[in-house]
């Protein structure tokens, strides 16, 4: 069972209090009624399902109720970071480099 740091509760809590909500940083177009079929397909249906780093949404549904974002490794389940909804997407390269440095230090 995962242990997830809620950026609003400022504490690690059991996965039991959370619900995963799919990929993060997919913005619903402001002019959604006007977008093309291809753009809608991209927005609504297509996902990468990466092996490794993923940016995903979680909701602390049985806690503070907030949606937030996380950068997680889908292989090791390690959370690199979690951050509040609306905050910018962290730099992927920096995250991976930080991990490498930590690995080297170990």
């Amino acid at each position: 069972m995962l242990l997830i740091y809620c950026p609003y509760c400022e504490e690690e809590r059991s996965e039991l209090e959370f619900r995963n909500a799919g990929d993060a940083h997919i913005v619903r177009p402001a002019n959604i009624a006007e977008i093309s079929d291809e753009e809608f397909e991209e927005f609504f249906f297509l996902r990468q399902n990466p092996k490794g780093l993923i940016f995903e949404r979680w909701r602390h549904i049985h806690g503070c109720g907030r949606f937030f974002n996380a950068a997680r490794d889908t292989v090791s389940d390690r959370f690199y970071t979690t951050y509040k909804a609306g905050e910018p997407k962290p730099d992927v390269a920096a995250i991976l480099k930080g991990e490498q440095d930590k690995g080297a230090a170990r």
């Binding site: 909500a21 619903r28 907030r66 949606f67």
Partner: peptide
């Protein structure tokens, strides 16, 4: 409730 909260918090904050 979750569907509405999702849109309210993340699309229409």
């Amino acid at each position: 409730m979750n569907h509405m909260e999702d849109y309210l918090q993340t699309e229409f904050p």
